[in-house]
Simulated scan of single mutants.
Amino acid sequence: MRGQVLGVDRTSGDGQISGEDGQRYTFRPGDWSDEKGPAVGLRVDFATEGTRAIRIFRLPEAQAVSTPERRQPPANDRNKYVAAILAFFLGTLGIHRFYLGRNGSGVLMIVISATVVGLIVTGLWSFIDAVRYLIMSDAEFDHRYARTWSA
Rank of each mutant, 00 (worst) to 15 (best):
I85E: 04
R24V: 04
S105N: 03
A39C: 03
E61I: 04
P38C: 06
R97Y: 00
E35Y: 12
S66I: 03
D31F: 08
A64F: 09
R97H: 11
E69Y: 02
V65M: 11
F57M: 10
L93M: 05
I110V: 15
P60K: 14
L42V: 10
E69D: 04
P29R: 00
W32T: 15
A83D: 13
V44I: 07
A87N: 10
E49D: 11
I54S: 08
M109V: 07
D77I: 12
P38R: 09
A87Y: 02
G22M: 01
F88E: 13
W32V: 07
L86K: 15
V111M: 13
G50M: 12
T48S: 07
R97S: 15
A39R: 03
V82T: 13
I56M: 03
Y81R: 11
G106W: 03
L90S: 07
I112R: 04
T51F: 15
A53P: 00
R52A: 12
G104A: 14
A84M: 09
F98W: 08
F27E: 04
G30M: 07
T26S: 15
L42C: 02
A53Q: 00
L108F: 15
T48G: 04
S33T: 07
P60E: 14
A62Q: 01
A53L: 04
F98C: 06
I85M: 15
D34W: 00
Q63C: 05
S66Q: 13
V65T: 15
L59R: 14
I112E: 11
P74Q: 09
V107R: 14
P29C: 02
R71V: 12
L86Y: 00
V40N: 01
A47E: 12
T67W: 12
E49A: 12
F89D: 02
L86E: 14
G30I: 05
G30W: 06
V111D: 04
R70M: 10
A75D: 00
R52L: 02
D31I: 02
D31Q: 09
A53M: 03
G30T: 14
T26W: 07
D34H: 13
I54P: 00
T67I: 10
P29M: 02
F98I: 13
V40D: 06
T92W: 07
R52C: 02
V44Y: 01
Y25N: 04
P68A: 13
Y25D: 07
E35M: 09
G50H: 09
E69T: 11
A39D: 06
R55G: 03
V65S: 06
F27R: 06
L86F: 14
L108S: 15
E49T: 06
G101S: 03
V40H: 07
V44G: 03
A62K: 03
R52W: 01
F57Q: 02
A62G: 10
F57N: 11
G106M: 14
T26E: 13
I95M: 11
L100Y: 03
P74M: 02
G91A: 08
L100T: 08
R43F: 08
D34Y: 02
